[in-house]
Amino acid sequence: MIEIDKISKLYDGVAAVDAVSMIVETATITVIVGTSGSGKTTLLRMINRLIEPSSGEVRINGEPTGTLPKHVLRRRIGYAIQGHGLFPHHTVARNIGAVPELLRWPPEKIRARVDELLDLFSMEPAQFRDRFPGELSGGQQQRVGVARALASRPDLLLMDEPFGALDPIIRARAQQDLRRIQRALGSTIMLVTHDIEEAIHLGDRVAVMDEGRLVQHGTPAEIIRQPATEFVAEMVGGVDRPLRLLSLVPVSEIVVDGPAEGEPLDADTNLRDALSTCLWSGRDALPVVRDGVPLGRVTLDAIRARAEGPR
């Protein structure tokens, strides 16, 4: 558990981050979202003390971060940034093994961990281990950057706009990979983005920042359904709100018994895509299957009911 306790940063008397408090549960993803200049990066960098807070405290599993030497603290916290920051003169293996090397793990253990991570990120170890970052595609570089941040099994992974430099298709794939890997490893992640779509898609919790203050902290559904301020409402987008809400729910949640015609949907499909399929194929109900086994059907009316905001 990460506790952020009334943490502030002043630059020339102006608060870049203003008394932010929040709790991040172990094995969850918290996405910090806000416009440019709202203090997201400053907040994140105060957690690994790349920036010293003006006041307040951060505790990781109850231990205040201020008690450790900075470099020792940072070796326990993974850090992945936009533009990846890979060492261009080191191979992929040496990049991923960088923190274990600092922690003086034995070489065999580092090698095994590097291969394990490359496998996890769907990069064939034998093929990629000895390449240099300049010999990878943008998406591969980004994956190696995240693998490096995860290498020493850190208590916490901080990510500052990690997918910011990727094009939309590769970006969607990177987000899926992160979700999958986070579930598999049980990592605790704090991720910064200015993209509300990414926040809703990735976050177990979303923290919205505005002018240095934390204005709302809750589940994606809460943020969309009950925006705490005008700013949050604007951020989650007036007309898109029902669709965003639908994108959070899998069809398995509203599947009912009964027949339906046509091509079936997988149970993990989200309601936004289900709605899309209804409209496109002109059907009022779709059959739902899981691993090829029929589960029942999902109706347009049921989808519509889940899209309604508070009246």
Binding site: L73, R74, Y79, I81, G85, L86, F87, H89, L102, R148
Partner: peptide, 27 residues
């Protein structure tokens, strides 16, 4: 050395000395 590389070196817990000898000097 590119700024992102320095940021990554600091963020992963290299001391000033390690950053000098492992990153800044070789680059």
């Amino acid at each position: 050395a590119p700024p992102a590389v320095i940021e990554a070196a600091r963020g992963m817990g290299m001391t000033d000395r390690q950053r000098l000898f492992r990153v800044e000097l070789p680059l």
